[in-house]
Design a protein around this nucleic acid. Sequence first.
DNA 1: TCGCTAGTAAACAATT
DNA 2: TAATTGTTTACTAGCG
Length: 286
Amino acid sequence: MGPIIGMSPDKKAEFPGMQEQRTGLRGACGAGTLPEAECASSPLATSVDCRGGSEDEELTNLNWLHENLLQNFTLGGPEALTSASPLLDIEGDHGASQGPSSSSHSSAHGKGRERDSLKSKPPFSFSLLIYMAIEQSPRKSLPVKEIYGWILEHFPYFSNAPTGWKNSVRHNLSLNKCFRKVERSLGKANGKGSLWCVDPEYRPNLIQALRKQHFPTADAFCTPPASPPSASSPPRHLFLQGCSFKGTDYPSRRAVPTGAFFSGVFRSTSAQDAADVSFNLCHIKH
DNA sequence: TCGCTAGTAAACAATT
DNA sequence: TAATTGTTTACTAGCG
């Protein structure tokens, strides 16, 4: 496989020379010894805080998916209800007592779906699973083992799956330029291995890719950053708060938007580009 | 048919 | 020494 993960051909055509620049980026910021604190604060916080607060830490990472995507999945029509979405797993694990939206699907039929979902492979790529795991973590960085744990927790399918999926996770972490290895703290008394975080250079661009290819309404839920992003004071947590997953967004395994998700990630060659992308994304329909 | 991406398996080295 | 982690390579399948 080539060095580009998730780069669709049309994106390559749009951004000739991207690969070379991305390689340079990797050399500049990847696999380095990014301080953990730094990783947890500014470098990863490239996204825009749509509400300008810090209390939405949760909503800006995985909750946007849980709260919005889950709604769209569960209400999105027959495809959504029958597609054995892993989000149903999430719902089954954590949302069973969280409200009417989940209880409305707690019928025998719903339980059957949950059982099925336990056996169904999540419609997310490993890259996206890793991304979600990292994003939901308070420090926006996780060791491999905790990534395993998050995936197991939210996608019970893997608990019964052959252990090869862990190899795939590690493979993605190493191969996917979206993920950066962060050395643990100097003390390094707890556990082996490094922490993994999402490369902030790539993160904003995925939103554009999502909107373009699979989530045309995603930008409708973004608000522009209060100020132009910069390396010193990057915007925080631009995310698809309410982006509209449709059941038809997952017509098949290969149509899962993770390819689009990460295809855009490689399109930006600089922080400013990324900022422009995210900013324009939030304004494009307004 | 071809090119691309994602998934999987495997081997290997380094680390704990 | 064993287990875990990280890297790399190779192959396959699905999709456009």
